[in-house]
Structures are given as structure tokens and as C-alpha cells.
């Protein structure tokens, strides 16, 4: 039975880590910190694996832990440093470099948002969660998700006007 649980956890990690890492990367802006975040969330999932697996809530629990840890880490100052102007002088010109520049701008802009603002954006527009679902993951009221989303989008317009194409229209609530 123990071996069976271990194999199930291994399988869970193998199959869900890529998706968890993608969200964690948006939350932290850094490969290593993203790995740390997912690793920490998975470790807590492992502590409660039998209960979570039996109830089918493992992934939901892991994501919830990840978002909560991210908030805690941010408060401790564990964030990636933004490195404007220190990127490789490569690939200037053309659509590809334009897309890369946009990505870098988006990454830098996300890191300038507050922890909750970034979390609601990732939940709403990357994970495609409803406001109610995002509120449940973050453990806040739906009204908080609405207000944080609005503030995040407004702040993006100020700090990253070059991203206007990305956030030109306010998202309709679902």
C-alpha cells in the first residue's frame, strides 16, 4: 500500500509539475524560484498525500498552497530581480524579437505588481478561473478579486504602456 501511494505521488508529480511550473513562473518571474515554489507546494501535498489522493483534491490543494506560499515569499522579499538593460544583445529586429521584447516587458511589469494583484491576474487570465474560483484559491472574497483585478490592470497600463495591446480592454466578469 505504501509503495502504491509512492507510485501515485510520483505519477502526480511527473504529470502535473509542468503545468504547476508554468503558473509558478508567472508568479515569481524566475526559473529557480518557480522550482522552489512548486517543490515546496508538492512537499506539503506529499505530507497529506493519502488524504488528498483519496478525496481527489491533490491538484487543487497543491495550487492553493502554491499561491499562498507565493504571497508569504513575497513578504519575505524572495523575488526575482528585474534586470532591465542587461539582456543579451541578440536578435534585434523582426517579429521574433518584438515578441521577445513584449515577453520581457510583461515579465518585468508583473514583478512590479503586488503579490495579490499578480496572483489574481495569473488565476483569471492564465488559469482562466472565474472570479469565484480565484477567490476560493486565494481565500479571499469575490469582491477582493474584482478590485485587485481592476487595480492590477490599471497599474499595468501605467507601468507598462508598451503592453497596451495586451490589456486594452477590461475583462468581463464571469
Amino acid at each position: 500500500m505504501v509503495d502504491s501511494h509512492a507510485a501515485e505521488f510520483d505519477s502526480f508529480v511527473r504529470h502535473r509539475s509542468p503545468a504547476l511550473l508554468r503558473a509558478a513562473y508567472l508568479l515569481t518571474g524566475d526559473q529557480h524560484l518557480a522550482e522552489d515554489l512548486v517543490q515546496s507546494a508538492l512537499a506539503r501535498t506529499h505530507r497529506s498525500w493519502r488524504r488528498l489522493h483519496d478525496s481527489g483534491n491533490a491538484e487543487a490543494y497543491t495550487r492553493k498552497v502554491m499561491y499562498h506560499l507565493q504571497v508569504a515569499w513575497w513578504r519575505r522579499g524572495k523575488v526575482a530581480e528585474v534586470l532591465p538593460g542587461e539582456l543579451p544583445e541578440r536578435g534585434r529586429g523582426g517579429d521574433h524579437s518584438g515578441s521577445s521584447a513584449l515577453k520581457l516587458s510583461l515579465r518585468a511589469a508583473l514583478l512590479k505588481l503586488s503579490d495579490k494583484q499578480r496572483a489574481v491576474l495569473v488565476l483569471r487570465f492564465f488559469e482562466d478561473r472565474t472570479e469565484a474560483e480565484a477567490a476560493e484559491v486565494l481565500g479571499v472574497a469575490v469582491g477582493t478579486v474584482k478590485s485587485q483585478t481592476a487595480k492590477a490592470l490599471a497599474r499595468l497600463r501605467v507601468i507598462a504602456p508598451e503592453l497596451s495591446d495586451l490589456h486594452a480592454v477590461n475583462g468581463a466578469a464571469r
Binding site: Q39, K103, R107, D165
Partner: peptide, 24 residues
Amino acid sequence: MDNLRSGLADLADDVNPADLRDRA
């Protein structure tokens, strides 16, 4: 907001896969 969605998805593509089993 489809553009923001695709922008976030593109950015998330930058993360490299990692085997986190042993670390976890």
C-alpha cells in the same frame, strides 16, 4: 483580454521543465 491571456501563456513557455520529485 485574449491578448493578455496569450501574452501570459507565451511568457509561461519560458520556464524549463524540472524533475522535482526528489526535491519535493
